[in-house]
Design a binder for these strands. Sequence first.
DNA 1: GAAGTGGATATACC
DNA 2: ACTGGTATATCCACTTC
Length: 819
Amino acid sequence: METDFIPLDYDYFDFEGRNYARIIGRNSKGKRICLVDFCDVYFWAILKDGTKDDKIKKLIEKVRKIKLDAKGRNTRVEDIELHEKNFLGKKVRALKIFATNYKDMHGIADELGYDEIEKRRGYDLGFITHYIIEKKLVPCNWYEISGDLIVGQDEFAGISNLDVDFCIKIDKINKIDDKKFQPKIIAYDIETDDIKIGKGEILMISLVSENFKKVITWKKTKKKHDYVEYVKDESELLERFSEYVKKISPDFLVGYFSDAFDLPYLKARAEENKVKLALGLDSSEPRFSRGIEMIGKIKGIVHIDLLKFIRTAYSQYMQSETLSLNDVANEFLNEGKKIFKFRHSSKILDDEWENYFEYNLHDSVLVFKLFEKIWPDILEFSRVMQEPIFEVSRNGMSKNVESYILHNLEKFNEIPEKKPVHDEIGGRMQMGKYEGAFVFEPIPGLYENIGVFDFTSSYGSTIVTYNLSKSTFLEKHDKNQYSIETQEGKLSFSKKPGFFPEMLKEIIEKRKQYKRELKTNPDDVLKKARSNAFKLLANASYGYQGFFGARYYSREAAAATAAFAKKLIKEVIEKINEEYKTIYSDTDSIAFLLNEKSEKQTLDFLKKLNSQLPGIMELELEGFFKRGLWVTKRTGTIGAKKKYALLGKDGKVKIRGFETVRRDWCALARKMQDRVLRLVLDDGNEKKALEYVKEIIKKLKQRKIEKSDLIIKTQLKKSLEDYKAISPHVIAARKMIESGIPVDEGNLIEYYIAETKEKKKLIREGVKLPDEKGEYDIEYYLGHQILPAVENIFQVFGIEIENLIDEQKKNQNRLSKWM
DNA sequence: GAAGTGGATATACC
DNA sequence: ACTGGTATATCCACTTC
């Protein structure tokens, strides 16, 4: 049979001791198809330089005899080939050793303690990664495939017992042009009586799919709702859920935080109720792998936890203060969660259940909409990294960089490097930091007419320009190399292009190409997504080489990258200073005063600068700004780094580092500072801002500020017992536990500082939870929130705001005598 | 017990 | 532990006089 096909989900099984890939996907008619495919498995034994041919022959004969009896599997060396390969850029001769079963390759590799063999590599990729590389059936691309239908008494009959339209044993695979693919999805969400996995009952489950909205519950209410389906009890609830999943038969089951909550909860309650949670296409139950984080897998259906993807792909560019569904939905969809005040189900009144159902349903609606929005990015991530959606939607960027590398090694005839073992990781972690970026110390002040240049993919371009990588690093120095002095000593890199910089060069070029193409066609969401995937890859590549867990870890390359980039930006600052005046710079950007020069002159100057830059280094205009403000540090008079506000030509204000953008300051201080910055930038002086601040101080003193504006939010970064210093948020967290509110690592703890009878020695003595009764501590908010937020800004204009507060204090005292 | 300092902690920038 | 280093700022914990 022949059909077109898009692969979505990958796993594998053993049959007669051998590995077979099982790939679930669809054809363009929407039929669900399971492919079964055989794949040779092999790894590499790299031979010592200069090993003689006859020795190799003898070695091959010895290796050929290796047999292994691992866990009842009879596995052996099936075949051996001698190849000319590259390893870390060096030419090597290597044995390609074919084994019976992928899982035993490590075992066979361990048997290869022969002198002639220098290294063993390529046994730790994971079968699916290996399969995709071998057979080039890349996830989320379209193929024309042919093969035999697996039916009835066939050899794979047992395995074919899947809920799919066809099961095919692959014969031929041909890549074809992309077609449109609209996945079928179910978004789901559960509500429970306890947030500890399996501890309380599941009250309801909502499911949202295309033209389908449903809440299943066992709670009987007087009023009936059309989208609510009432079942007998929790066990029927679970069964009904499985039935719907089976009936709708989605490609993806999508949740939010569902790896660690919804799916394991469902499984736990199924066990409790002794029902089978038969979600898999083979009616199997979800399985969980516990690494540092729990991951939930369903056979044949891709379980996606949107939180994970959002965390790696977007969080650094997002404004949201947390990655909660509410915050994320608000930012992406302009729509938040519904409001429902949780209580134990036994305490919820009959007429309140309707709200609960709606709340539950709406969460799934949000997840559904979020998925639709994010899907192009997930799709392109999968295509670019060439890893299945299940992996790519969970992996961090270091893993994504590594996936990209592993799937592109073949072009360089490279044997893959191994993962670092535990000891190696330990050693790398102990190394400590190397010297990083340069940050210019600004002179505090309000400036006018500012230009900002920055390097495009600064570190990525540096790696490419100077060929910085593990495989190009040289222990010995000579003239014809890229060399740089660092704190680690002189570091040198070969000029012969290495595969890592070469790959990165392609990544950066593609990114630029897609970005250009987008200009003519800005609505092409897939192109935009692809461009974005390449951008993120380029940005993470530098961090990857400095990351202790990386296969291609190179502290030298990372340190050299930072050093080269630092040297270059300092040189550029010097050049800019010949015509302009630099006022600030951080890592890859430079802000300078235009003075009497025009924008056109400045752009010409930029062109000239670019023509003098080495390699693929490129400066671009970030923007021209009307005004900019830099302030001093809180202690001392020197300019604060990483803290400034710019007013764009379009009237937009760009604020960096100030309390305004920090979530651990109360809303009052943040809003006030934001307004002060805008007023100062708009007017070019402090007059209006000063009046405004006086107003706020007055209101605060008259207790006219809403408590909600005084709430301070601080994240609990570790478990409560681990804190050595008991800071206010730790006290708040303790109070929460006392009053029965569950507190977990990672929670954003909210509190305010209340007045105390006696003068406090420590701030934490005034900590109260938001709904705890109390009067806010005026002194604290004036001295610790308001004043610090604006003090430095007014200092730029020679105004000491502290005096102003004291003045008012005196006035107030005088006034209060008469009142 | 006030004052000063370093450490712990959180969060931001690029 | 799940990309890197640089930087600010707060509040606590401890030392010192």
